[in-house]
Every structure is written in structure tokens, then in C-alpha cells.
């Protein structure tokens, strides 16, 4: 199970305030799917570009990025700019 760390606002809105959750999944695709099950609305927010994810300290735009059973997935707000 990968450990996922969520931003406070996302945790509050979608995960009942839990800022850390554990989900199964061997890629970010699977992790996002599992997060959607626990926090409905997460997938759309991630797909819409509002969130970015890092696996074990490395930002990963590509959701086929492998995720290990001991991986840490950090979810961060994405900021584009003007």
C-alpha cells in the first residue's frame, strides 16, 4: 500500500480531513483510481490540472510512473501562472 499525503484543502473537501491515506496501486493511474474511490471528485480534480503528484520525491506528470508498496505519493496543488 502506498502512503499518500494530501494538501489540507483537498483532505478537508474530499477525504473527511484525513491528510494521509493508504491506497493500493502499482502506477499513479491505479493510485488515482483508488483515491477516487475514497474521495469522490479527486480524479476530476487531478485530471483537470489542479493537482500534481510526486512519487518518492520526484514530480511525475506521467501517470504510468511505477508506485511501489512502500512508496510515498505527495499530492500538491499545481500553480501555472499568468
Amino acid at each position: 500500500m502506498a502512503r499518500v499525503i494530501l494538501p489540507g484543502a483537498v483532505a478537508n473537501e474530499l477525504f473527511g480531513g484525513r491528510e494521509e491515506v493508504e491506497v493500493p496501486g502499482r502506477t499513479l493511474f491505479a493510485v488515482v483510481h483508488a483515491l477516487e474511490v475514497q474521495g469522490p471528485g479527486f480524479e476530476e480534480r487531478a485530471e483537470g490540472g489542479g493537482l500534481a503528484m510526486a512519487v518518492d520525491g520526484v514530480l511525475a506528470e506521467d501517470w504510468s510512473t511505477p508506485v511501489g508498496p512502500d512508496s510515498e505519493v505527495l499530492v500538491v496543488s499545481r500553480v501555472a501562472g499568468g
Binding site: 489540507g8 484543502a9 473537501e13 480531513g17
Partner: peptide
């Protein structure tokens, strides 16, 4: 307010809250 738990916040003019 976005960023608050559903049911916790009353309607207000606060669009959203972010903490760090």
C-alpha cells in the same frame, strides 16, 4: 468555502481557504 470540510462551514463570502 472551498477547502473546508462539507457541512462544517456556513455559507459566506469566503471563496476558499488554503493553509500551509
Amino acid at each position: 468555502t472551498r477547502g473546508e470540510r462539507p457541512g462544517k462551514a456556513e455559507p459566506s463570502n469566503v471563496v476558499g481557504v488554503t493553509t500551509h
